[in-house]
Design a protein around this nucleic acid. Structure first.
Lengths: 227, 227
DNA sequence: ATGAGAAGAGTTGTATACCATTTTAGGTTA
DNA sequence: TAACCTAAAATGGTATACAACTCTTCTCAT
């Protein structure tokens, strides 16, 4: 692992932690002194962060942590609604039994974590959910599709989205996972794509309209205790 | 504009021109001497070209211009079929009169060039077609959608595709342009998206199955003289 | 008081140098 | 002939010095 790799990981982590706030500048010299490195590896790390969409460079002025507006989030969901169904549409005719089993285990593990329901469990669900989608992308076997999705699905958004979920939304998400697996096992790409589309649209609804949940809170409680 | 930006643009252009053939190596030292620059900006440009998918790096050996397989072309069309309709779906509710006029002029100009039909005219059509799509993307007003399309629509493919067109396919393409404009003028995103989808699928058919044209050559001639 | 313009600080952009690593080609030896 | 060794060539990674640019601030004339 090179110094540039480490710098890349460190800066990215600090952006995720909120240590580097959106809109603030990441100074090459500052990081360099702190990590006792020259500007060269820092620059390379910053360029990679730019191409990954984490920071933007203003020529001769600096690298700024990107700010996410509501509009940005909507744009990403709009594209995910197109691309993620395509992932499973392709995967349906290409996935093999071992990977299906692997998906099943991930779904099972996520469901168990759902039962716990605490904040840490939510975090773990988010991690497993990422792996679930990553498995699907691998099964889809389309490097370009993978690249496009990696380019737009920024972890800070997807990671936090689970915390916005109501119990109903969370369990709905788990049911989607199961149904996607069934559709893939059946080799039915359109079925899988439809479920995935619903899956993404549900995520968007939870992300964009969290206040609506409050009015339904009592009903969710009933559903939760009913399981 | 920095030197690295210029190098990036120059190398990309040379790949498009065919000056740097697929599979050939882009040597840092060679470009550096030619443009009278050090390796630093060249390296930066090459890294960006790698992350944009134009070249690939063989460790310790060099940066090679990527070769396009039939599968790559299919992958790109598969993604364009998803993304380009989304462009006009968005544009339908956002486009203004001046831009509609501009699209009309481009369509008009392309149709005139169709009448000529020589190789140079085809080249000019390809250029105008690129501008047509670029106008649509601007009207769609989605930076991410634009970025994704720029990332996958490698011009060497789209540029040459028109030369594969039969007359029938070429005129069909022109009719698509007109119908897209009509749909946009009507503010009907789904109509526009459907036509665009057909537009891309037609392009794919022309690109992937050029031999099929030969059997129809006489009929095409008739159609051409019939207009 | 206000606007234009210049100077300065701060920051990035580029050149150059150094050594490590790897590949490749060529030559040597058994 | 085949295996091995060696040297050249190219990139990979980093450090350092200097050039160029941007933005701010201060001055000065109106």
């Amino acid at each position: 692992m090179t110094a540039a790799d480490r710098v890349y990981a460190i800066i990215k982590q600090r952006i995720l932690d909120g240590q580097y706030a959106a809109g603030s500048y990441v100074r090459e010299a500052t990081i360099g002194q702190e990590l006792e490195l020259s500007r060269t590896p820092i620059r390379e790390a910053l360029r990679r962060l730019v191409s990954d969409g984490w920071v933007e460079v203003i020529p001769h002025h600096g690298a700024r942590v990107v700010s996410w507006t509501q509009r940005d989030v909507e744009e990403v969901f709009e594209l995910r609604v197109l691309l993620e169904p395509q992932v499973v549409r392709r995967a349906a005719s290409r996935i093999d039994a071992p990977r299906l089993d692997s998906l099943g285990e991930l779904a099972c593990h996520m469901e168990q974590l759902c039962e716990r329901g605490d904040a840490q469990a939510i975090d773990e669900i988010a991690t497993l959910n990422d792996r679930f989608h990553a498995e699907l992308i691998t099964a889809a076997d389309s490097p370009r599709l993978q690249r496009l999705l990696e380019a737009i699905v920024q972890v800070p958004v997807s990671r936090r989205s689970f915390h916005h979920y109501s119990d109903e939304e969370l369990y709905g998400s788990m049911r989607h996972h199961r149904e996607i697996i069934r559709a893939l096992a059946a080799g039915d790409g359109e079925w899988a794509a439809s479920v995935m589309r619903a899956h993404i649209l549900a995520a968007r609804a939870a992300q964009l309209h969290p206040p609506a949940r409050h009015a339904q809170q009592p009903r969710q409680q009933r559903i939760r205790s009913a399981r």
